[in-house]
Design a protein around this nucleic acid. Structure first.
Lengths: 355, 355
DNA sequence: GTGTATAATGTAAACGTTTACAGTCATACC
DNA sequence: GGTATGACTGTAAACGTTTACATTATACAC
């Protein structure tokens, strides 16, 4: 039916959308009454309400959200800042975020930092303006960004941090995360128990603080066991498959080749496994591999990948609940971090060392 | 510094943000001049411009985007509707979408349908309102949604369809996609050439049209080869790993067990591979597997997964370019679909059948 | 110096809501 | 029948911009 309107090059139809005025005129009431009908129906008499509702139906009126946002000073939008939407772990967190947000009528505006600190500054800029009613931070932002976030220059936006980013917690933001360090200690302890002595660690990025606690846990556990970490046993995998492949190749060439590799996330563990098998080595007989996050692919790797399960969706839900609470009450919540439980999921990618 | 403002339960600081009026007062000009300084600096004399800019700096003014959106009737937001942000293929498409959008100052509002047709209706609702300046559709929407989209009830929003959704193209929307059917024919022809005769197909969902063309291609190729498709050789995998595992288990129990399984996307192919190996069968010796999309995990599967590469990021870029073109010019672009090239990527998950 | 063209700036309306306040009207009570 | 009360509705201001139009200042030619 609208095919003609769709002819290439033709002006798009731009019939004026109906406004509250049109409804008011048709129902023969003031615009205030229409507004009340929409927002607080109990405050208008049934008979007039019916008239107005009929007019709304007839005109097909729906309030202009732009005008509402403007007038109310609320956007009903939450900004989510994360390193990469591609990571299955963050995908899962976002599922929780989204469900809770949608249930309260909020939309999600997603901002990938793509491991790029430049864009973190842009986040700061967005924060100053009132593009969103609140922010979920799943990524570390540049110092400047942090400064802007915590400045009192403007209306201070509600922010909740998901996962663990130390610098932001220090800035007093509430957060929800597992105890990354404790989990990493468990992982390393477990490998040590199996008899591994040469354990390597593939971390994320130098600049990113995302996997810092996990690295600390690894180091602490090794230290506690009286083992020294050789030069070249801790390498960066850039949080990507290709980065992890290169990192693993380095590890396999090491003069003291590790018997176990602990990857700071599953994405890298998947690359790591591939590199090991491509080098003609067997998992776990030659090298054990363990990841972090327990993404949905971990269980179907060959062999199935051991990992640390985070309650990703829960984290998302709780983060959003705290954030919305802060937004709706106008009060900042307790900044005490919420620690959610993790779980070591043991699968067949790990075994005692053979030598 | 703002630690006190952050004490739990305490009112959040809400210092009034500076408006254009504050700047005007300080610079001793009218608000119109300030506005011009910001939007069209050449139209104000250098001396006054300097005064205004100093005032802007001093006050820390930045225009209220809500007011701008309201006044201009533009949100600088593009809505993206897709089945699941978790799928690595869509992730890649979104990378292209995002890059182009950001370059022009647009943000992305993401809407997952989660294979849920209910939410598709909500999309319709969002469309009628002016939440976004345009829409990218990567998912099929319910009939009602389509109706709303194409209705002339209100200002018709620019829409571009990514990937292939027949019903929407029929509605006259421009689209960018590969030739899914031709690609699926190539895949099936290739398997036939290798000598396979018992070829199964795992499709997406009954309701979703996303993989319909691929299924058609498979059927056409089989038909052309004079082969009949036995009952139970075409099963639904729900586009998920677990769905594909169940589907594969069904296939493996079939009285005429397929020697090759063609999965409508890589996510399902990964689940399929896992199910085959779990059943104690070898890939490709016992069963060949081929996927679709060539996501980043395909190459690191064991064995590496053959697939059909789509230029996912390109698709995203082109979709967004068309959409922004339509938005900025106010004219709908040529509705003729843009077909981008695909490529059969052969890896070790496929071999001739042994029997 | 006058006149004219043009540049620079100011005035004020408009965008579509929400909402404080004022007004109207019906009801109930005396 | 007057009055108080409360329910309902209307009036108009406000939110922070942008922009058409009006006004004033400047530059330039004679």
């Amino acid at each position: 039916m609208s095919q003609t309107a769709n002819t290439p090059g033709k002006k798009v139809t731009t019939k004026q959308p109906v406004s509250i005025k049109d409804v008011a005129r048709l129902a023969e009431v003031s615009i205030a009454t229409v507004s009340r009908c929409v927002n607080d129906p109990d405050r208008v008499r049934a008979s007039t309400r019916n008239r107005v509702e009929a007019a709304i139906l007839q005109t097909g009126y729906s309030p202009n959200p732009l005008a509402q946002s403007f007038r109310r000073g609320k956007t009903k939008v939450i900004m989510v800042v994360l390193p990469s939407v591609g990571d299955p772990f963050f995908t899962e967190v976002m599922k929780g975020l989204r469900e809770v947000a949608n249930a309260s009528g909020y939309s999600l505006l997603i901002n990938e930092t793509q491991f790029n600190t430049m864009t973190a500054d842009e986040i700061g800029a967005m924060v100053v303006s009132r593009q969103a009613d609140g922010i979920v931070l799943l990524a570390s932002v540049s110092p400047f960004g942090t400064a802007v976030l915590s400045s009192d220059n403007n209306r201070r936006l509600p922010v909740v941090v998901g996962c663990e980013i130390v610098s932001l917690q220090a800035a007093g933001y509430p957060s929800v995360h597992i105890d990354n360090q404790a989990a990493a200690i468990e992982v390393t302890d477990y490998l040590l128990e199996l008899g591994h002595r040469r354990i390597a660690f593939i971390h994320g990025q130098e600049s990113s603080l995302l996997t810092k606690d996990r690295e600390d846990g690894y180091r602490l556990s090794m230290l506690a066991a009286g083992l020294s970490i050789e030069d070249g046993w801790v390498v960066g995998g850039n949080l990507t498959i290709t980065g992890a492949i290169q990192a693993t190749q380095k590890l396999l060439r090491h003069r003291h080749r590790p018997t176990a590799i602990f990857c700071a996330n599953d994405e890298m563990a998947m690359g790591c496994m591939h590199a090991i098998k491509s080098a003609g080595l067997k998992i776990p007989q030659d090298v054990s591999v363990i990841g972090f996050d327990d993404v949905r692919y971990a269980a179907i790797m060959d062999p199935p990948l051991s990992s640390v399960r985070q309650p990703a969706k829960d984290i998302g839900e709780q983060v959003m609940l705290r954030l919305l609470g802060e937004i709706e009450t106008g009060r900042s919540t307790d900044a005490e971090p919420v620690i959610v439980p993790h779980e070591l999921v043991l699968r067949r990618s790990v075994a005692p060392p053979v030598d």
